[in-house]
């Protein structure tokens, strides 16, 4: 099951050229680009690992593509997302965030139902990948 999250999630995965153009757009607006990765695909997982610090003071997308490729090389089977932070007064928050890499094989989620008192039903979504420990959930 293909996990969708952030901007462009309804589109096919962006090519490197498209990613590069998005990054340049962010940089031209003066936003700081940031890379994060995780192998926990749950939509409520907000704790993504940071790939280095947010990249302030960078002018050209190629520098960030270099970092992205380094991150991809090391975290082959992780989700990687790219976000851009706008430090302008009154914004001071992320302006864009999208997935730039996903594991080759996304196992998807199991839905479990639990019957509780009074014919009530409690649902749980659990990623199949999470059965394995962190770092070995996809591929490796």
């Amino acid at each position: 099951m293909r996990v969708t999250q952030g901007c462009f999630s309804y589109l096919p995965d962006l090519t490197d050229e498209q990613i590069s153009k998005q990054i340049q757009y962010c940089l031209d607006n003066g936003w700081a680009v940031n890379l994060e990765y995780t192998d926990d695909p749950h939509p409520r997982n907000t704790y993504w690992e940071m790939w280095g610090l947010p990249m302030f003071d960078i002018r050209d997308a190629k520098a960030i593509m270099g970092e992205l490729n380094d991150c991809r090389r090391i975290h082959t089977d992780c989700y990687i997302r790219l976000s851009a932070f706008d430090a302008t007064n009154t914004w001071e928050s992320l302006r864009i965030s999208f997935i730039v890499q996903r594991p080759a094989d996304e196992a998807g989620f199991m839905l479990t139902r639990q019957e509780i008192g009074g014919r009530m039903m409690r649902y749980e979504t659990r990623a199949y990948g999470l059965q394995k420990p962190e770092g070995s959930r996809y591929g490796g």
Partner: peptide, 8 residues
């Protein structure tokens, strides 16, 4: 530093 200088 090189990352900052790329493109310039």
């Amino acid at each position: 530093i090189l990352k900052k200088a790329i493109g310039g």
